[in-house]
Design a protein around this nucleic acid. Structure first.
Lengths: 114, 114
DNA sequence: TCGAGACATCGACAGGCATCGATGCGATGA
DNA sequence: TCATCGCATCGATGCCTGTCGATGTCTCGA
């Protein structure tokens, strides 16, 4: 389901955004607009090697393993996380391209008018 | 309701995000994680003077005036838009500080490890 | 072969949210 | 004073989503 392109995102300011552009970025924002998922991405990004094992992530939250697994699936489906199974464990890693796409949206350079 | 501080947001990468930090930013992301609202912000930001009249915004969507008004309220409550009534018309303007706060989250500088 | 551990999936439930029509309210002009 | 216009609010409705317990699947070691 995760699209390989992620070729979206002119900055939010400047020219008005088309319907298609909006519908490309919104899934990314929706995926990040949850405190648990935002912390998951942050935890993974801050881990050594930019990846983290599900077993470690489970311990960081007072939530069921099923719920964490669900959130990780949402982030993976949105194209924000890569999934890598190694033996018994599963490692998730942040996809920098996805974060860059969102960053372009809020490009601060466009916020300082002439 | 809109908080004056908006003092949130260390970058997503680097150090893991605290629960409090996440709960500060998530309302902003939730407000933006809707195609209509994202286009509203984009339209307003791209308008002359960085502000737009509700009457013009209504015409840009195939939605009821009540629905647009609702979305504008959500964006205003999240602190993303300023509201200014002038006679019969109401103008909404983007609050750059709010966008900057979100931009800091996705600061691309933090995405390029050493 | 079997048991145990690590994740994913399923079904269910409650709460949240986008949308609408109807209505209220304030400002303007006749 | 009154009709009209611009916008906000209200109540209802249907869909989406976060969470859970239970169960399935895969891998490894005994």
């Amino acid at each position: 389901m995760s699209d390989p392109g992620l070729a979206c995102c002119t900055p939010l300011t400047g020219t008005p955004m088309s319907v298609e552009q909006a519908e490309q970025v919104v899934p990314l924002l929706k995926a990040l607009a949850d405190p648990v998922r935002l912390r998951l991405v942050s935890l993974i990004a801050a881990s050594a090697g930019g990846e983290a094992c599900v077993c470690d992530l489970n311990d960081a939250f007072d939530l069921t393993q099923a719920t964490i697994s669900h959130h990780l699936k949402v982030l993976h489906s949105a194209g924000l996380l890569d999934r890598d199974k190694r033996g018994v464990w599963v490692y998730y890693a942040v996809r920098p391209a996805a974060l860059t796409a969102v960053a372009t949206l809020f490009d601060t350079a466009a916020l300082t008018p002439a």
